[in-house]
């Protein structure tokens, strides 16, 4: 970081370049608590090595001695990993792995605006980490599916137990996945898209 110069700032590898015909992009957001496997899932399906973008948040610190008018500030850096899938010559899908704590979301203004939908990735050892995010998604009317990332040592619950614990309605698709596995991760994204498809068909019919 310290010796970076812009003349040598690495761009995308030539094999990662999008075709000139790429005209529009869509996004899916993967949300979940720390260490739940968001980046693992993105890596499993992304055509590029996941990239990271950071935003810096500055907060005035409280309870610190006032040093002759010098305002002391603390900085928090919040990172977001993302990957990419070229769906065809024109359409590109971006996958964003986003920290579950909603207090960080304002940093990525518009992240959920225009997103196709969200995947809530859940670790059964820390179900409570998902409450915040589920509430927020319902509030913003972002369609979502819930995927339990099956860690070997994590307890397994029945579908009904999970729905009750997470306060999910029957309509919300709920599945178990292995974020390390490409086919499994692809299945989660397809489940979200098929859910969106059914929602769109329903709204067209009414």
């Amino acid at each position: 970081m310290a010796s970076r110069t812009f003349e040598t700032a690495a761009g995308p590898r030539s094999e990662d370049a999008l075709p000139a015909s790429a005209t529009s992009a869509v996004k899916i957001v993967i949300v979940g608590g720390f260490g739940v496997g968001k980046t693992t899932l993105v890596r499993s399906v992304s055509e590029i090595r996941p990239l990271t973008t950071e935003e810096t948040m500055t907060q005035a610190s409280t309870g610190v001695d006032d040093l002759a008018g010098v305002e002391r500030k603390s900085m928090t850096t919040v990172a977001m990993d993302f990957g990419r899938i070229s769906l065809n010559d024109e359409l590109v899908l971006y996958l964003f792995g986003t920290p579950g704590q909603q207090r960080f979301w304002f940093l990525w203004n518009g992240l959920f605006d225009g997103a196709l939908g969200a995947v809530v990735l859940v670790d059964t050892r820390r179900l409570e980490a998902s409450f915040d995010v589920l509430g927020r998604l319902e509030e913003s009317q972002t369609p979502f599916v819930v995927a339990v990332n099956a860690f070997d040592e994590a307890p397994s619950y029945t579908d009904g137990e999970l729905r009750e614990a997470l306060d999910l309605t029957d309509e919300v698709p709920l599945m178990v996945c292995d974020a390390r596995n490409r086919e499994s991760s692809k299945g989660v994204l397809l489940a979200l898209m098929q859910y969106l498809h059914s929602l769109a068909m329903t709204s067209e019919a009414t």
Partner: peptide
């Protein structure tokens, strides 16, 4: 768009 994403995936 939804169909295109499903097809692409």
């Amino acid at each position: 768009i939804i169909k295109a994403v499903i097809h692409g995936l």
